[in-house]
Amino acid sequence: MTFIEKTTDHRKLRRWEGNIEADYIYTSGLAGERFFTELRKNGRILATHCPRCDLTYLPPRMYCERCLAELRDWKEVPATGRVEAFTVARLDEEGHEAPEPQVWAFIKFPGIHGGFVHIVAAPEEKVKRGLEVRPRLKPQPLRTGEITDIEAFEPAEH
């Protein structure tokens, strides 16, 4: 059994326009505060280590997701990471053609669990899995303690 009557004249069917307005401030949290403050002030990237599970988390967490211990052991992340996987974005976030293609990659560091999804500042033909990259930070006075303090990852110079 369905509805007894159905409108077939589409001009009589209505739509209602609206939005879901909201504004957010996300705190970085306990681990995030130390991570972003260190990045902003000293340009260092830190991770947290779980001695029981022998995992080093990046971005750092205040707890180990495996054993749920509180983590107090902080380590500096090696300067050079590697492209683990990448994609080339040709559309912007609104779905329009981007002025130029942008390479996005998942970047991992030796001995570190996790990593960053970030932009790789290199022509797409040069980016491949395993490419060694290093973070390019904004100049210190312009850093705000957000993930965008890292402008991009660049191919590492040897």
Binding site: T7, L13, G18, I20, Y24, I25
Partner: peptide
């Protein structure tokens, strides 16, 4: 006074009013 990230989503809708 604490580090933070701000975000303003733009979620627009057109709800079908239905029968």
């Amino acid at each position: 006074k604490v580090t933070q990230t701000r975000y303003h989503p733009r979620a627009k809708f057109s709800w079908s009013a239905g029968e």
